[in-house]
């Protein structure tokens, strides 16, 4: 048995992962969520703002992390729209513009009263990464001379009187890496003391805890936090209860649980093989 497991073709493990992730999806397994303190802090940062506050939503990610981050971006957009905040969308990733368009589709489909130019605007994308963020701190119109629809910012009601990003009441960043939350902390939230919250991938989340709470008010780390956030949002805004699109993160926690348990079992089996082998002097 030990010899079989020791020489196990890794494709059997791949098959197990495939079954572990696909079965809960097909069986529509979901589990109850209990929002953590960190998630509640992020939620309050948006909810405690006066209605109609200016919120910059920077969606700095692309399809390679959409599975993790889209539920966060959607939840932030819905919450801000329910609070009637003025939304300024932008991205620092070239493949991020469709991510912004998807968030805007939520506004178009679920909040038909939200009007482009007075309630939300799509600033689009700029090359340069951290240099764009740095420039935004002093000159919005110099950085984005036109929006994503090629309309000049001075002709758009909600941008014409804005000088720079310091006029924002909150920055919400959904990020998959560089440029992303770290750069917003380095160039905006720390030097200019602007309240910032973020939704980030599992890979980057642990690295950003060092900035909490002074430089970052809070973060949502990976899909679990997204699910907790969706749960909290539905609790506070029951009108979302019947909206299946507002439960993407919650839905994804089923495969998450089974896959995590599988990986733990694999590690345990791997260690049993290792220790039994060491006792018999055959394993390294």
């Amino acid at each position: 048995m030990r010899a079989f497991l020791e020489n196990l073709d890794r494709r059997w493990i791949f098959l197990l992962v495939l079954i572990a992730v696909s079965t809960p999806i097909l069986l529509k397994l979901t589990f109850p969520e209990a929002p953590s303190k960190q998630v509640r802090t992020v939620f309050s940062a948006i909810d405690d703002l006066d209605d109609g506050s200016r919120v910059l939503i920077a969606l700095d990610y692309d399809p390679s992390s959409k599975g993790e981050l889209e539920p966060m971006a959607s939840a932030f957009t819905r919450q801000c729209a329910l609070k009637k905040h003025k939304l300024y969308f932008m991205t620092l990733w070239p493949q991020g513009t469709p991510m912004v368009n998807q968030a805007i589709d939520i506004l178009k489909n679920e909040f038909p009263d939200y009007e482009y130019g007075t309630d939300y605007v799509n600033l689009g994308y700029q090359t340069g990464g951290e240099a764009v963020i740095k420039k935004l701190a002093s000159d919005l119109h110099g950085t984005f001379n036109v929006d994503a629809n090629n309309e000049i910012l001075k002709n758009i009601p909600m941008t014409q009187n804005l000088k720079n990003v310091r006029d924002m009441d909150l920055i919400v960043n959904v990020s998959a890496g560089d440029p992303g939350t770290k750069q917003w902390v380095l160039f905006i939230s720390t030097p200019h003391n602007i309240k910032t919250v973020a939704g980030v991938t599992g890979v980057t989340a642990p690295t950003l805890y060092a900035y909490i709470p002074r430089q970052l008010s809070g973060i949502l780390g990976a899909i679990k936090a997204a699910a907790e956030y969706e749960y909290l949002l539905i609790q506070n805004y029951p009108e979302l209860k019947e909206n299946p699109k507002a439960k993407e993160g919650l839905r994804r926690m089923g495969p998450q649980l089974v896959a995590h348990v599988l990986i733990i079992v694999l590690i345990i089996i791997g260690n049993i093989i290792f220790f039994t082998g060491r006792r018999q002097g055959t394993s390294v």
Binding site: V21, G67, G202, V203, A222, I223, K224, R252, P255
Partner: peptide, 17 residues
């Protein structure tokens, strides 16, 4: 970090499936 990385990768796979 390892725990969080696993979480991230599984979410991406779930989305593709």
């Amino acid at each position: 970090s390892f725990g969080y990385t696993v979480m991230g990768r599984v979410a991406l796979l779930a989305q593709r499936l």
